[in-house]
Amino acid sequence: MADRRRISVTINGDTYEREVETRLLLSDFIRHECELTGTHVGCEHGVCGACTILLDGMTARSCLMLAVQADGHELLTIEGIAPNEEELHPLQQAFMDNHGLQCGYCTPGMLTTLLEFLRDNPNPTEKEVRIAISGNLCRCTGYQGIVDAALDAAGRLRGEAGA
């Protein structure tokens, strides 16, 4: 008989209460139970970084957590990054302006990873950016556009004019 539990998880400010099987991955909970399909799943063994979300403000690979482990915690996913329906977050805008994405598969993980990174390192070097995204695979861009976008976004978030 399946081991099930009732859990309550706050995602992007909304609370989701569901009864789930305890072996359900957090990534599948977010995508299938909460229907927030912005979080992508590339490998399901922790290697690609596409499924990265913020758990209580810190990045984690959602394919390496059980949904039950998020019970009572707060998540931020790609859907929660923009300030409102019309505007993009400066990081998203910088990705658009610098060809930081092509197919977009890696993008949710890149953005969540960089959100935490730029919060903790507002003025990074290019090398630091490359290390920060070393756990995220992109098959399209060759990374240059992503690195440019991250550095551009850092400037915008620091409030530098013309950045």
């Binding site: 922790g46 970084g49 758990l55 984690a60 390496l64 935490e116 756990g135």
Partner: peptide, 9 residues
């Protein structure tokens, strides 16, 4: 050891 995301956990 891995990446920031893996070291967080």
């Amino acid at each position: 050891v891995g990446h920031r995301q893996t070291r967080n956990r």
